[in-house]
Every structure is written in structure tokens, then in C-alpha cells.
Design a protein around this nucleic acid. Sequence first.
DNA 1: CGACTACTTGAAATATTTCAAAGTGAGTGG
DNA 2: CCACTCACTTTGAAATATTTCAAGTAGTCG
Lengths: 258, 258
Amino acid sequence: MDDLSHRPLSFRHQAHSHCVDCSLSPICLPVAIDAEDLHKLDAIIQRSRPLHRGDHLYRENMPFEGIYAVRSGALKVYTTTDSGEEQVTGFYLPGEVVGMDGIHTDTHMSSAVALETTSVCEIPFLQLQDLSHAIPSLQSHFFKLMSKEIQTNQLLMLLLSKKTAESRIASLLLSLAERYKRRRLSESSFRLPMSRSDIGNYLGLAVETVSRIFTRFQTQNVLLVEGKEITVLDKDALCRISMGHEESLPPRCSQHGT
Amino acid sequence: MDDLSHRPLSFRHQAHSHCVDCSLSPICLPVAIDAEDLHKLDAIIQRSRPLHRGDHLYRENMPFEGIYAVRSGALKVYTTTDSGEEQVTGFYLPGEVVGMDGIHTDTHMSSAVALETTSVCEIPFLQLQDLSHAIPSLQSHFFKLMSKEIQTNQLLMLLLSKKTAESRIASLLLSLAERYKRRRLSESSFRLPMSRSDIGNYLGLAVETVSRIFTRFQTQNVLLVEGKEITVLDKDALCRISMGHEESLPPRCSQHGT
DNA sequence: CGACTACTTGAAATATTTCAAAGTGAGTGG
DNA sequence: CCACTCACTTTGAAATATTTCAAGTAGTCG
């Protein structure tokens, strides 16, 4: 079984890191790709050694080479404003794909940094494009993936433009909970990979405001906050808050676990 | 010359509305497509009669059929929040492509409404996908187009999350000016197709705030405001305001006309 | 243990929203 | 053609949310 000679030469990486074996494949790029085509995708993917906290996956203005699927850990993506400050544009968790904003300029328009020890699969873009050409379902899936990214950003804009600090934070927490759930992890109890200051930056709030709101949620028995460990005590309340008014109709996101 | 018999039957529309003749083609989808392939794209494009102010191009939850390139006029795209309010997610001007957020669900996730008399080219998505498969440069271009949309949204998030009301509005005006310039129209004097309330909704500000800021900009001799007619008197100031502090280093967006 | 960085908390300053009202303008029907 | 209406815009003043400034408290890593 350890005889790798039947595998193409391009398989340079550890035996355990193939898409077929990856627990994330149901939510990652391999979705909607036939088993027989999967090895073609697998073959172009580069697995490199993990990044440590603070290591950059890519930086603004670096040539764009490919997109990255997060395998473990978490990434923070940010741009630098003209005045030199950092502006966080997103957090990426395992199974999510990052770097698609660089496609149209051949240059990364943002930087991606590891928030904790993080490993990624790099998918060189030229090869992905060729492969998409060969496998229509991959082309189609990739269009969808980008479309989803567009929509995610639109939802975020919605979040940012209309809501109060409380609802922004509630929305972020619900989004994270949803993403943990997707990975079959607890949606009610998880660890925030990012700092309060990253959250504030992302949501357009001062750090102090973020901190105060966590405290407030704790006081209201909506959350249990222990540093970065968060336990959602009252998801319904969080939903209500995220949607606008605390006292409003039961929200549609309220089907909390059985 | 009026003999159309040499043309494929699929050319059902007016003779004047072909990509080859369209003044927008240098900034629209036809960019980066060989002349010889252009007619293939042209052949799948549906041109319909113009929408009037208030007409919807598509609505949330309607089946997704294709994307649309704006030919003239202006569109407002919005979603409806759980609590029923409208949230504007973008404005689309001639040469811009709208509807890409619906690709991944086969359903429109937002609604698009005409802000004034507007004509669009519909590009049925299945056919575009097939065509992308046949014309690699189109696939590539479309990836880029989506990537650009992602980045535009990221920039907007940046705008929404960090800045003050003044800088949000300054940024919007600069963005519009840039887009008019791209179409070889005046970048210093133009008509806003949207209402103050749309602007406020889009930028996450109360209508009154928008109105006050227009007045303030006028008082400061940054703008001349006559209802929806805007004249930019001091682009440098607008740039400075959009970037953060009024008193800051000369911004990089300050190369105003010759 | 000490130095750091991240986080929390309070109080004053500020920006924005909300409420209320009045002004403008385009389109309609008398 | 005028008067009327409706929707949009502007303005003011009070209410509110958030930021900023200023300490102070935890953790964490060497």
C-alpha cells in the first residue's frame, strides 16, 4: 500500500493529503466533480508546509499565481488603505477558498495572513483554468464559487451598511457558527481565531466597542465569553439582534438544533 | 446592405444593436474577445425593449437565467432583509454587468430595478458557459469579470466599514466620476441617477445625513449641487475626504484632468 | 518574573440618527 | 394654465450610538 509507483510523478506531497481523503471535500472545490476527474484536480494542487501565526500566504502587489483552499487553521485577508491602515476584508476557515480577487489583475489586491497555524492547498490558476476548460463541471463549479463569493460580500455589505454595532457582531457570530456547523463542528461553542481588534476592523467598529458588546451579550445571557472561547447561549436572541430590533418577530434563522 | 439573409437566423433584433457597433464594447464583455469570435457572443445576446423607471429587470427568488450588460440608463440592485426593508447593494451604469450573484443558486438573490429608462443586453448563462468552453479567452475574461466584481465589493466594504459619512459620500462620487470618465463622459459634471435615499441606503446613512453632507460639500466649495446634477469643483479635496482626513498628504487619485 | 500585547472599563467628546417640519419640483386634472 | 398632490429633499434640534482618550487588568511568551 505504501508503493506510490502507480501514482503520477506530480504527486510530490504527503500521501494523506489528497482530495479524495480530505474531510473537507464535501464543502471544498471537489464538490460537484466526478470521482474520475478528481485526481486531475488533485494533481495540480500544491500542498505546502503549514503557515504559522503571522505568516503571510500572499501580500498585496505580489504576482497572482493561484487561489488557495484553507485546509486547517484560519486566514485573515486585508487590504492597505492609501493612508496606510489595514482594512480586514474577510476571514477564511477550512473548506473556504481565498484569493479570487486577484484573478483580474494578475496581482494580489489584498494580503492574506495566518491567524493561527494554517495549512492550505494552492491551486495554480492557469492550470485550474485549463482544467476548467477540460472539465465543464469544474468550470461551472468555479463560476458558482465566485458567484458565491460575490454574494457573501454583498451580504456583508448589507451587514455593514445598515446595522448597529450589536447587530454587526451578532451577524458575524452567526456566520461563524454556520460555518462551523457546516464542518460538523459545534455551532454553539467555538473559538474565535481572530482578535477583537480584527473583528472591530472588519466590522468598522472601535475595539472598545467590540469588547463592550461582548460584555453586554454576556450580561444579557446571550453569550458566554471566555476570551476567544464563545458559547452561544441564546441563538434566537442573537438572530433577533442581527436582524435589527431585539423585539421583533421570530426570525427565520431560529431552527436551533434538536 | 439591408439584406440580412447572410446573417444567422438568431439575429432577431434591430440591426443597430450589435456588439461590433456598440460604443460600450471596449469596456463591456466583448473586451478581450477576437473579432472573429465576437459574433458568437453577439449571437447569444438577447436585446429586449427598454425598461422604464421603476421596472424590474429581475426580482429576488426569480429563476436565474442570465447576466445583463447595461447598455444605457442605470440599474439599482438591492436585497430585501428578513425584516422586509430594502438594502441597496449596488448601482450599475452602462458597460457594467449585473446579475452574477445569482449564478451559484440558479436563483436571483437580489432584485434589479431601473432608475431611469434603461436598456440591457441579456446574456443567457448556459449559453455563455458553453461559449466560454469553446472560447478560452472568454472563459478567462469572465473569470476576470467576476473577480473584478469581488474586488469592487471588497472596496465597497472597505468604504462602508471604516469611514465617516463624508468619506463614504466622497468615495461614491469619485467612483461615479471614474465610471463616467471610463465612458468618455465628463468626470467633473454629471447627473446622479439615484435618489438621496438610495444613496443613504447604499452607504448605510440616513437620508438626512446624505442631504446635509451634500450641502456641506457645497458650502466648502467642493461640489456644486443642483438636485441630481453634480459638479465636482475640487476633486483633490474630494479625494482627501474619501481617504480619511481632510488635512492629509496629497492623495494618489489627484491627477485631475490636463 | 517581567515585558508585551490583548482585552476591558469608564467618562467625555463627537458623529449620526431620529423626529418634526418646511421647502422644492414634477406631473395631473380641473 | 393654475392649483394640487405626492414624492423627494433640505433644515433644525434633541436623542442616541459610537468613538476617543485614559487607565487599568489579564493573559502569554521569553
